[in-house]
Design a protein around this nucleic acid. Structure first.
Lengths: 168, 168
DNA sequence: TTCCGCATGTAATGGGTTACATGATTAG
DNA sequence: CTAATCATGTAACCCATTACATGCGGAA
């Protein structure tokens, strides 16, 4: 559904174009590979959710969303399905009983550091984009990332303190 | 790797036993299905990371971790690989430009509500468990969930306010 | 004419899900 | 004896990733 949404936002895009959008603005949210994207575009076209509205040089195919596609997209956007979360990080924390305390501390320190780096990277990204006044959503998504990284830092520090105390 | 970790924590468990552990204490972190688990146990045994140390009634097989398994587990636990995040929720937010503002508001309101519910459910879970003083990790993981839900609520409210202002 | 960027596709592999399938033991 | 629980497994399918493969067009 990611692809169809992007086509709705950018009618007349090709798979190649979309790939750049994925890498530039959705990399942190919904990574997609080239292989996967082209396959999905063909499937969506077969299902009639998108259609080729023009062809260009080098076999370029420009897609637009169809009416049925728009209906499907809106339905998907608004259905409040809860996707199961899966955090390898927390799984590791849960299993951290299997390593010595010093390693556990190191692990948590690493988490803090990576969260700090992630936050910094997002800040850089934010300032490198010249935001159009109408695309609020991009900024909101980026802000979500910042908040998540900050929460992660806070938690990791909390966990470190807790662990230090309990093992004493 | 989840299975091998749980076996390390609970030597002598069967697939059936592990399934209960998954459902009871890892459901919010690393869901696993029955099918998948049994398959993985056989694979891990083939690879020599775990071994069947006893058999019981009804074909029950009790597993324990091997020395090679323990090495592999520790290595996996401590390697600081960053798994790419993928948030269907944020993807939807990014595409929320495709629905009318009232629906966007509704979407964000739903997020707040679901995050509140999630938080409440975790609180209930927390109070329903009688925590052994030595399993700090379980509590830390639960606390992570609480913090994430709280951040989600805060963000959703922030997003709502931002949107309301910009569309006026 | 040579290289870079545009542009699309296929194949192999791995992991996950749902559904199906089977049977043994125990408690009431 | 019957139902619930214990206990494991297989098959079909979907989605994602990596790697491989191909070819056109434009710029220098």
């Amino acid at each position: 559904m990611a692809a169809i949404g992007l086509i709705a936002q950018n009618p007349g895009s090709s798979g190649y174009d979309l790939l750049k959008v994925f890498d530039l603005s959705l990399a942190n949210v919904w990574p997609a590979t080239q292989s996967q994207l082209y396959g999905e575009l063909n499937r969506l076209a077969d299902d009639g959710l998108i259609e080729v509205t023009a062809t260009g040089k080098r076999g370029r195919k420009e897609y637009s969303i169809t009416d049925t596609g728009r209906v499907a997209l809106r339905e998907w956007l608004l259905d409040g399905a809860v996707e199961p979360t899966r955090s390898a990080l927390m799984l590791k924390v849960f299993l951290l009983t299997e390593v010595d305390d010093e390693y556990a501390q190191e692990f948590l320190a690493g988490m803090t550091e990576r969260a700090r780096d992630g936050e910094a990277a997002l800040r850089d990204l934010h300032s490198s984009i010249d935001w159009a006044p109408d695309d609020v959503m991009g900024e909101l998504v980026l802000d979500w990332g910042l908040r998540m990284y900050r929460t992660q830092q806070e938690w990791a520090e909390h966990a470190r303190r807790t662990l230090k105390q309990r093992t004493k």
